[in-house]
Amino acid sequence: MTVTSPLRILIGKVGLDGHDRGVKLIARALRDAGMEVIYTGLHQTPEQVVSTAIQEDVDAIGLSVLSGAHMTLFRRVLELLKEQGADDIVVFGGGIVPNEDVLALKEAGVKALFGPGTPLEDIVRFVKELPRSR
């Protein structure tokens, strides 16, 4: 008998800065919404994120970038997922990303980017409504 199981979401902080208030609040909110959140902590490299996502077989990866390195870091994560045939994993992000970069990153395959001040419930709703293709 197959049972429905909670979504598994990797939440991590890429880049060198240590501002983890937002990611921790998001991790807690997703947990409270019934998801399994794999929290990887600070200073993750794109390589670590992708390797972890695959080992943990997550449905989605949520990354926070506040240091301005979003273009480099998100692109690298997407590239690595593709290389490893894991681009069915949804990537979303949060942080300070200027509008034109948002467009470019969405084009590159980032599913959503949440700017500063986004209500947590919006993020939770987004994750909940992810298509369950897997």
Partner: peptide, 15 residues
């Protein structure tokens, strides 16, 4: 970290 450290990619001169 130095600006040419692999971990510095994308972060040099930004913040």
């Amino acid at each position: 970290l130095d600006a040419d450290d692999p971990l510095a990619r994308g972060e040099v001169g930004r913040c």
